[in-house]
Write a protein that binds this DNA or RNA. Structure first.
Length: 253
DNA sequence: AACTGCGCCAACCGCAGGGGA
DNA sequence: ATCCCCTGCGGTTGGCGCAGT
């Protein structure tokens, strides 16, 4: 058999469109199949990763809130490097995101350690020596891309925009204040070793999103008018008009 | 203004587990 | 019962942009 040379590297706008379209058609499980029929010339793995880490409608972009940071630290002290597990407790955050955050955090801790003694990283009070400053200091994308509307500034991937039902997944930075950490802690205590997928719940203030790795397409369907014949994309969707305004075909990297 | 270092994110790789044939 | 394929997870790295010099 001749091994097919798959495309690698950053995803283009067109590839994203295709992927979203085919995930809409076939769901988010059969990645190899999607990769094949879509003609993306990517591996199923690559498609899945792109979806989970970037295109998934439940994603919450932007820097982690202090609450989230604290939660990550606590959960990490509990579970170690079980990123996906930790991610399930942070609605809208991916394991990759958390992993990256942790790396950055550890680096900072190491640097601070060089300078002088610091409280233990896993203590919720101690970690704030770096965390809180971090909160103000940097968000690479938010600050980097000032001047242009960034995915990372909007509280969610653009695909979400324009749909009122979906928009509700965008938990803005401010909304995080109302994000009940107590609920999360309770949840953690209750489900310690019995993590279940939970339905999306909106009580008027807070959201509980489905775990990232297994997103549901139910809430996306209205966005996608699937036309298999013509393969038309919903160009009227804000997501697409957004991208059409952009000059670059490369979305990331 | 140019250069360098750093921080951050996206994406790849390898491995393990689960499910179906 | 075994094998194979697919999916998911964790670790790692390359590239981009910003900040400091």
């Amino acid at each position: 058999m001749v091994q097919q040379a798959f495309r690698k590297g950053p995803w283009t706008e067109q590839e994203d469109f295709k992927l979203v379209y085919y995930v809409g058609l076939f769901g988010d499980r059969k990645w190899d199949y999607i990769a094949k029929v879509s003609g993306l010339n990517r591996t199923g793995k690559s498609c899945r990763l792109r979806w989970v880490n970037y295109l998934h409608p439940g994603l919450k972009r932007g820097k982690m809130t202090p609450q989230e940071e604290r939660l990550v630290l606590e959960l990490h002290s509990k579970w170690g490097n079980r990123w996906s597990r930790i991610a399930r407790k942070l609605p809208g955050r991916t394991d990759n995101e958390i992993k990256n955050f942790w790396r950055t955090h550890m680096r900072k801790m190491a640097q601070e350690k060089k300078k002088g003694p610091v409280p233990t990283p896993t203590s919720s009070s101690g970690c704030h020596s770096s965390i809180s400053s971090n909160n103000h200091a940097v968000d690479s994308h938010a600050s980097k891309k000032s001047g242009e509307e960034s995915f990372y500034d909007t509280g969610g991937p653009p695909i979400l925009k324009g749909s009122s039902s979906i928009e509700e997944f965008n938990i803005g930075e401010e909304d995080q204040e109302g994000f009940s950490m107590d609920d999360i802690w309770k949840d953690i205590d209750m489900s310690e070793d019995n993590i279940m997928e939970q339905p999306v719940v909106y009580d008027g203030n807070n959201f509980s999103c489905p775990p990232m790795p297994s997103p549901s397409w139910e809430y996306l369907e209205p966005l996608w008018v699937v036309d298999e014949e013509s393969m038309l994309f919903p160009t009227s969707d804000p997501y697409f008009s957004y991208h059409k305004q952009g000059s670059s075909t490369i979305l990331t990297g």
